[in-house]
């Protein structure tokens, strides 16, 4: 087993809304990312993916609050760390984060080199402009970005180029974990491919040690990650090797999700997609039993009773359902 870069144990975090209600968007989540590996996170809009990203960096600014659990980065437990310290000593060096839609949030009046200066000087205030420029142009060159990009404004770059620039700048300090939240969803296929290639190159060259990749584009997830975690209403419902999660999902929600993958291959138009009708539960008052019960085709009365725990299914594989693996397979076989 590789060295563990990031470990999260039983993490629970919540938002407190302006009406003083608690929204448990991350509910008892545990995960591990080893050196050289990448973990994908999938799940419906609003299930808590972005919140999990912030939570596992220790980035707790209102309305987000830490409730319980441990966050261990490369052996160091940072749970309970003051968020301002997190900003200073974790962000960029330990964990780099590329927020959802980051490329559209760049300050339009600043050149790219300026963003690089911001990132480096936050960590090392003594770095000179010359040193920063040299490091940046060397790194850009290595990653296949023309160093001239450093002198451009965000609006002068195409979408794909902008996103690759954001990634290159975010990882300039060589973080142990890169968290990329929907880094390519807004791009066309060719730019998407370039972004993915870049992430792969970053891993292979060791410029980042491990990665968490969040997206609802499942074919991408499969192509980029070693392990996949599926979230539903703030909880993990399935977690395992990428190929298992995609080709042999156990949880009924993952099953529905994987059945809705759209790829331009013969036969797509004949086979119906398995849409999952219905709405996820309100996270302010989640149901006591299984959170997916209301939408599950295979629901039984027992599902609505007590909370459903995570259970083991095969090596390194977990899922959250009252049915055993063989019962689930039986159910799926009969439904087909």
């Amino acid at each position: 087993m590789g060295k563990v870069m990031l470990e999260v144990r039983d993490l629970t975090t919540k938002y407190i809304t302006r009406f003083r209600e608690d929204v448990y968007a991350v509910d008892h989540v545990s995960l591990k990312v080893e050196e050289g590996k990448s973990l994908g996170i999938a799940g419906e809009s609003g299930c808590g993916k972005s919140t999990l990203a912030l939570s596992l960096m220790g980035y707790y600014f209102p309305p987000l609050y830490y409730t319980s659990g441990d966050i261990i980065i490369d052996g160091r437990n940072i749970s309970g760390m003051n968020p301002d310290d997190v900003r200073r000593s974790i962000l960029g060096t330990e964990i780099a984060y590329i927020p959802q839609a980051a490329m559209n949030a760049l300050n339009p009046t600043q050149k790219v080199i300026h963003f690089v200066e911001d990132v480096i000087q936050a960590h090392n205030p003594k770095a000179t402009k010359k040193e920063i420029y040299e490091l940046a142009s060397e790194r850009f060159h290595l990653l296949g970005l023309p160093p001239e990009v450093l002198q451009k404004y965000p609006v002068e770059l195409s979408g794909g180029m902008k996103q690759r620039t954001v990634i290159a700048v975010s990882v300039i300090l060589g973080p142990k974990v890169l968290i990329a939240d929907e880094p390519s969803s807004a791009l066309d296929v060719t730019s998407q491919k370039m972004v993915i290639k870049m992430l792969r190159d970053l891993m292979e060259s060791g410029l980042i040690k491990s990665m968490i990749f969040i997206t609802h584009e499942l074919p991408l997830l499969y192509n980029v990650t070693d392990h996949i975690m599926v979230m539903y209403a703030g909880q993990i419902v399935e977690h395992g090797a990428a190929s298992e999660a995609v080709f042999d999902p156990l949880h009924p929600y993952s099953k529905g999700l994987m059945g809705s993958i759209i790829v331009p291959e013969a036969g797509l138009r004949e086979h119906k997609l398995t849409a999952v009708p219905g709405v996820p539960p309100n996270l302010k008052k989640p149901p006591s039993g299984c959170r997916f019960a209301e939408r599950c085709k295979y629901v039984r009365p027992e599902c609505r009773g007590a909370a459903v725990n995570i259970r083991e299914g095969g090596v390194g594989r977990t899922y959250r359902c009252i049915l055993t693996e063989s019962e689930l397979r039986e159910v799926y076989k009969n439904a087909a």
């Binding site: 296929v189 060719t190 370039m194 993915i196 290639k197 074919p219 331009p264």
Partner: peptide, 29 residues
């Protein structure tokens, strides 16, 4: 158009789509 593309541009677009049943070729970028 999708299964039997003729234009070079269409062919490239289709080959760039991530595949799940076969290895996605990243060497072309």
């Amino acid at each position: 158009v999708i299964l039997r593309p003729r234009a070079a541009y269409t062919k490239r677009l289709i080959s760039d789509v991530p595949k799940i049943y076969e290895e996605w070729d990243l060497s072309t970028v």
